[in-house]
Amino acid sequence: MFRNQYDSDISVWSPQGRLHQVEYALEAVKQGSAAVGLRSKTHAVLVAVKRTPGDLASYQKKMIRIDDHMGVAIAGLTSDARVLSNYMRTEAMRSKMLYNRPLPIGRIVSALADKAQVNTQNYGGRPYGVGLLVIGQDETGPHLFECSPSGNNFEYYAMAIGARGQSAKTYLERHYEQFAEASLEDLVHHGLQALKATLQQDKKLDTDNASVAFVGENQKFTVLEGEALTSYLARLGSTDAPAAAAAPADVAPMETE
């Protein structure tokens, strides 16, 4: 993607009918490390790979709890994700305060989309530089949504965002028919396998860089990290992951996370 004369502000159309700034924001999501979401009839699961700037640093967290029934995985600008997740938390609390009702997942996702849209139409502004996978459980069951900087949002059976997310999507497309009836453990396993497909050749999922979260009926939103993942990773190591689709050329990770 190259600079051109129609990308200096968000509110300027290109003659081809494109908003280049929005498309750049979508690129920012692709620079973030991968996050995968999938759901069954009873649970929704997120898995993600965390990045670290080096051996001396901690890993950037990828999962954010919104409420007991909802959480997100992020890819892109972490600081933008913090703004959005704070907004989601405020709305979740407001719903509890006013109606004593856990905030319906679809509603907050629409509200998020409205916020993102505003940033694609105002001069001098910039779109959010983060993509979210939102999972949650409400009266209508478990849900998985993707929120993107363009203001689009879709509900999915399974979805991946972030660097080389396409490889994960290939895995998900091949296996999604099994997800509906899968147990929570199997769902996490599928998620990790999809996530594994996004890794560079020399990288592995381990207790340091993997992050798992899930929610369901009678299951509060829970994040598993570190030693808690040992059994899942052991199972992952013992299965032969399907050959990943040819990964696109690696994009150099910028200061996105």
């Binding site: 305060m97 006013l98 109606y99 004593n100 319906p104 679809g106 509603r107 409400d138 009266e139 209508t140």
Partner: peptide, 19 residues
């Protein structure tokens, strides 16, 4: 207006009224 299948159940209406 949301038209998304979510309804305010009696406990939710009650909490609203309490507020």
């Amino acid at each position: 207006y949301h038209n998304d299948g979510h309804k305010l159940a009696p406990p939710h209406l009650f909490e609203y009224l309490r507020n």
